[in-house]
């Protein structure tokens, strides 16, 4: 079901372009499909989880739902992983999961027509090409469009546990 959803959305963006939420990680600008973004909030009250990679900051309580927080700055080794009142968390909703990602800053929401999106070459971005759907141009600046669903679902981030099937998850999901 998840793949079906994914491909449907891909098709949509491929055909007609879409709106992107742009954010910065270090010196690079990134964009993610606005439809995958649930909300943007500040960074606070993160409960640490033991024995996880450093970029998993822990979990937060988002109105009664427990949501993991990933610091992409640490994951991709860019910017400075400091936490203060201006630290921004983008709450993403993909793959039936709600996940918060910490970035350097959120810039804007932009609409990119499909024809202005170029395929991603093998480039030296911090992000692996696998997670890049294309490159957009915005005010003469390059915008790297991220396949956030693929990134969140990747083994690299270790958010989605591929070994546990869904039925077991439901058991404690009350």
């Amino acid at each position: 079901m998840q793949t079906a959803q994914g491909s449907a959305v891909e098709q949509l963006t491929a055909d007609g372009g879409a709106e992107y939420l742009t954010f910065t990680l270090g010196s690079e600008s990134y964009g993610i499909d606005i439809l995958k973004v649930q909300e943007i909030r500040g960074y606070d009250c993160v409960t640490r989880i033991a024995n996880t990679p450093a970029f998993i900051k822990g979990v937060i309580n988002l109105r009664g739902v427990i949501v993991p927080i990933v610091d992409l700055r640490i994951k991709f080794n860019v910017g400075e992983a400091t936490y203060h009142e201006f630290t921004v968390v983008i709450i993403i909703n993909v793959l039936n999961k709600v996940v918060g990602i910490v970035v350097d800053g959120v810039s804007d929401v932009v609409a990119l027509p499909a024809q202005s999106i170029k395929p991603a070459p093998e480039l030296g971005a911090s992000l692996d090409t696998r997670y890049i759907t294309g490159l957009g141009t915005l005010n003469d600046e390059m915008l790297i469009l991220v396949d956030i669903e693929k990134l969140i679902g990747s083994d690299e981030l270790q958010i989605v546990d591929s070994t546990v099937d869904n039925t077991q998850k439901e058991a404690v999901n009350l």
């Binding site: 409960t47 033991a50 009664g64 949501v67 996940v99 989605v160 546990v164 404690v172 999901n173």
Partner: peptide, 23 residues
């Protein structure tokens, strides 16, 4: 459930939200 949005956490049988809103 932590597993709703994250994976299983070793040593924990789930999580809860405390009076101060923390997990």
């Amino acid at each position: 459930s932590i597993e709703t949005n994250y994976r299983r956490v070793d040593g924990s049988a789930g999580a809860t939200i405390l009076g101060d809103g923390r997990v």
